[in-house]
Nucleic acid binder design. Sequence first.
DNA 1: CGTCTATTTGAATGTACTCAAAAGCGGTGG
DNA 2: CCACCGCTTTTGAGTACATTCAAATAGACG
Lengths: 197, 197
Amino acid sequence: MSAQCQKILNHVSKHIDLTSEEAEHFSSLLQFKALPRQSVILKSGNSCNTINYVNTGVLRAFYTDDKDKESTIMFAIADWWITDMHSFINQTPATLTIEVIEDCSLAQLSKASLDKLFVDIPKFERLFRIMMQNAYIREQVRVLQNLSQSAEERYENFIRKYPQISNRVTQKQIASYLGITPEFLSALRKNRATKKS
Amino acid sequence: MSAQCQKILNHVSKHIDLTSEEAEHFSSLLQFKALPRQSVILKSGNSCNTINYVNTGVLRAFYTDDKDKESTIMFAIADWWITDMHSFINQTPATLTIEVIEDCSLAQLSKASLDKLFVDIPKFERLFRIMMQNAYIREQVRVLQNLSQSAEERYENFIRKYPQISNRVTQKQIASYLGITPEFLSALRKNRATKKS
DNA sequence: CGTCTATTTGAATGTACTCAAAAGCGGTGG
DNA sequence: CCACCGCTTTTGAGTACATTCAAATAGACG
């Protein structure tokens, strides 16, 4: 079994137990890929063929509106999964674009492979049930924060909760995650700096 | 099998096929409850013991912050499920409150029953995987709309997408779902009325 | 080194909130 | 069936939060 499988197998084993045959079968369905920063692994409008487990690196998924304004729906670092879930599951054109922020290595599962996995090893339904459940809860918390908190509070939360993301992406990207302009984030940071001293 | 099971069994059968024994077993784990409007089925701070399938009626789940400002995370009408997912799954104190807006009848599953269901009939892992996946996608769309759209656009979207919710709940409740004040929603509506004519 | 993009700064504007008060509406009890 | 009570909705003035636009500065990458 290839060395690059170790991390994802560890990840999987946090939620379900696999026999060595099952692990072998799962691994055989994975495709490994290394990509340099600025690569685009999914372009909105195209079909989203894979769900991506991040071994190393940083990625970003974002939506671009009709005025070319970007809104970042998620960042992904080591041990996270990233895809355009709606597009991947329903095999419809993607609404999101996914780009590589820091050189990355990925383990990819195609829709066909995942469907096969669910049939061959039903335990994976459980794994994905748990993953989707956690993703749902995370997004729900984010909606609540967006509804109830000011931009400044959201920024504080973000850098506190995801320090290893916030110091590897640009302020412009963080602003687009928080739903504010880069100019306003800059002003917030200035304000914060004076407060602390 | 009780008549009130029909709706939920129909719902389940949209995603998985059950034998009549399985359907019977599933039904035996359900608890049915009818509640008048203004009932509170979950109070924040208490433990969330059930996930609730709505047969009829309208419910609302909301967060109350330290300044007593409410933010509505979801409404539920017939054929929806509602719970404080984080609290239910992890059996931790609820952060949400769930209240009945219109007299309702519910089918409830306790955490223990659901866990048992996953063991006894693994197909339910699939059902919940799909449910959680859809919930995740919905919340993700909502985050993107909150980030990229104005309050007016969000209001338009809401009443277009959920007409049978928007005409059964108060404007105050809609405002708390959109993340704006009731006063501002009132102003938006006035504005909209003049535009149309 | 030079170019391109990110970040900062500031002024003017727009979007949404707060507070207070009036008007409207629904449910309840007489 | 009407009158009252409490809550929701509307209205308006004043304020705060966040955006836009433009220009200067700083940083990163080739």
